[in-house]
Design a protein around this nucleic acid. Structure first.
Length: 602
DNA sequence: ATTTCGGGGTAAACCGTTCC
DNA sequence: GGAACGGTTTACCCCGAAAT
């Protein structure tokens, strides 16, 4: 739209710009106008990105040259001041050094500057202090008792050793090494206390030492260095405490494990933070924010928080504020991660639901083909190709998800809104007919001709029910009655049965779809059933014939409505349009309620 | 010196609203 | 009904910091 002609050319390299996104107008390169002018490029021309990159690099190099020169100058000056502060170098006249220092860089001005009234500047106390040589070794012959904190006159005076003190607590340290004896009278109160402690306990307390400001700063330095080391240790690749290596990490993040590994990797920093915060979760939050500030790869908690608040409906501005605070990653990254997660979920659905459905459909088709072939050639030479991956059968669950949005100000446009959605989930079956011995599987029978006594529990079934009830009652007793509590460990946790290993494994459970339809209306329920049918029921795509029926569970209301929808569609011709591939089943709590009702009536 | 990853800039694409 | 406009999303690229 904005392009002046059909073909866009780079003004510098004359290459045609093929990708419409990779060019820059020279008007936008304001900071490089001078460079562009020297190259003969005027305003409102177009440059390809590789030329723009080169220009940027040029700019960076210019900047680098400036900063490097500046840095070198600083370094030189620093070294020079160091050298000039050395005792031997002091005699060199300031003028010479000054001249040498400046002649290269500062061009002499033509006019002589007027002398400032304040010059020569009175020397600051600090510079005077610097000139007094410190820690200069006294020649051995002159090594005597040195007193600190007293005027120089006294040092000259020979009577220092007999000076009278009005304090009754006096400390004098004598050190003997290599045959030389040196002693010093300690005036500083902190040092006095430390020496006293050494006398008393043969150890100095750090608490006392810390009373000296210099010592405290040094201690702080030590701790700081230690903590910095710990922080860089956390950042390292092998310590992936706060890193997002896999999207599964986001789901499996465990505060307890995180605390443990932090206590191990960074004990000092952890103790410092937890001494301030107290609460474990707060400490971890502080830790995470700090580590995110140091290295943006440490972003697992930021991602979790960001995704959570995003799902609660935070705006982009809100996310930006939280990102600036270091609590979440940027809104853009959240968006990116969300897309990634959606793709992953789609992949998962494909691998379980779609794969199973396709497998069933394919099996029927190949069987039909085989039959046709057999009929044609009368030779059963080919065998049914068996897929190596046998996908476990699935069942579907669903429930309505209603949200009411109340605007802060109700106007004619902004009214209370109710959103009705339907969430469809998938669960992989753990125990199937194939797991039973063929002996145990009851043969298929017509419900209408079944003898009436089959509806009553037989002796064996009642016995097993009573056994199981006993098991449940024992669990309740052991839980609540004090003197029975010690017996808890002797009672099996679960009622033993032959599939206990299978039921112990974690279920495969997936959110499949959020359908924007209300189950309250018949049309909504029908569209929901259509989606479920399309997604999860294996059927022949040409004749719309159901190959296998799938359980579709939900609460009693959903069940009722699904059943009504199925009945409403009975006039349709094909099986798929009649929703024949769905078996209704009430779920969870409702089933338990039904069970209890049965027991109650017993 | 190279690699990795998140932040951020830019422009196209897209979407909804308003105006003529 | 379509142009104009404004806001949002998305793809692409570069940059910088830290790790390797």
């Amino acid at each position: 739209m904005a392009a002046p002609s059909n073909k866009m050319m780079c003004a510098l390299c004359f290459c045609e710009i093929l990708n419409k996104k990779s060019y820059r107008k020279t008007d936008t390169l304001k900071d490089q106008t001078v460079t562009l002018l020297t190259l003969g490029i005027s305003d409102s021309q177009i440059l390809c990105y590789s030329c723009v990159n080169k220009l940027n690099k040029l700019k960076k190099l210019d900047y680098d040259i400036l900063t490097k020169v500046e840095k070198l100058k600083c370094e030189r000056n620093e070294l020079y001041t160091q050298l000039s502060s050395l005792p031997g170098a002091k005699k060199i006249s300031a003028e010479v050094s000054k001249g040498r220092n400046n002649c290269e860089h500062t061009p002499k001005s033509l006019e002589k500057r007027k002398r400032n009234v304040l010059t020569p500047t009175p020397k600051s106390a600090r510079s005077i202090k610097k000139q007094i040589p410190q820690n200069r070794e006294t020649p051995q012959s002159r090594r005597r008792l040195i007193t600190f904190g007293e005027p120089l006159k006294q040092q000259v005076d020979k009577s220092t050793q007999t000076v009278m003190t009005d304090q009754d607590f006096e400390v004098k340290v004598t050190v003997k090494y290599k045959g030389i004896e040196r002693s010093r009278k300690v005036q500083d109160d902190v040092w006095k206390a430390v020496v006293k402690q050494i006398l008393n306990n043969n150890s100095a307390s750090m608490k006392t030492l810390a009373k000296n400001v210099k010592c405290r700063d040094q201690m702080l330095d030590v701790v700081k260095r230690k903590i910095q080391g710990e922080a860089s240790e956390i950042c390292k690749q092998r310590n992936a405490i706060f890193k997002v290596c896999d999207n599964k990490d986001l789901k499996n993040f465990d505060v307890r494990k995180c605390t443990e590994s932090l206590e191990e990797t960074a004990p000092y920093l952890y103790q410092v933070l937890s001494s301030v915060a107290g609460k474990k979760a707060h400490t971890i939050t502080a830790f995470s924010t700090l580590m995110y500030g140091r290295n943006m790869k440490n972003s697992i908690l930021q991602y979790i928080t960001g995704l959570t608040v995003d799902s609660c409906g935070i705006t982009k501005e809100g996310l930006q504020v939280l990102h600036d605070l270091g609590v979440t990653v940027s809104p853009r990254s959240i968006l990116r991660k969300k897309n990634e997660l959606v793709l992953e979920q789609e992949e998962k659905i494909k691998q379980t639901v779609t794969a199973y459905v396709q497998q069933r459909e394919k099996a029927v088709v190949t069987e039909a083909e085989l039959h046709a072939e057999v009929r044609q050639h009368d030779e059963a030479t080919c065998t049914i190709p068996v897929d190596e991956n046998v996908y476990p059968p699935i069942e579907m669950l669903g429930d309505n998800l209603d949200i009411t949005i109340t605007p802060s100000k109700i106007t004619s446009d902004a009214q209370r809104k109710s959103l009705h959605w339907f969430l469809v989930m998938m669960k992989q079956k753990k125990i199937t007919v194939e797991d039973f011995n063929s002996m145990q599987v009851r043969e298929q029978r017509d419900i209408m001709t079944l003898p009436k006594e089959n509806w009553l529990a037989n002796h064996h079934q009642t016995g097993s029910l009573i056994d199981n009830m006993v098991h449940s009652i024992i669990h309740v007793l052991v839980k609540y009655i004090e003197f029975l509590k010690p017996l808890k460990c002797d009672i099996p946790l679960y009622i033993p049965h032959e599939f206990i290993e299978k039921t112990q494994t974690k279920s495969v459970f997936l959110n499949c779809e959020l359908i924007e339809a209300s189950e309250n209306s018949a049309s909504g329920m029908i569209s929901i059933m259509e989606r479920v049918h399309d997604l999860a029921v294996p059927h022949t795509r040409q004749e719309n014939k159901v190959i296998e029926r799938i359980v579709f569970g939900g609460d009693v209301l959903t069940n009722e409505r699904a059943f009504t929808a199925q009945q409403n569609m009975q006039l349709n011709k094909s099986e798929v349009d009649r929703f024949a591939g769905i078996i209704h089943r009430p779920e969870g709590l409702h089933r338990q309620m039904n069970f209890l009702l049965v027991i109650d009536t017993y």
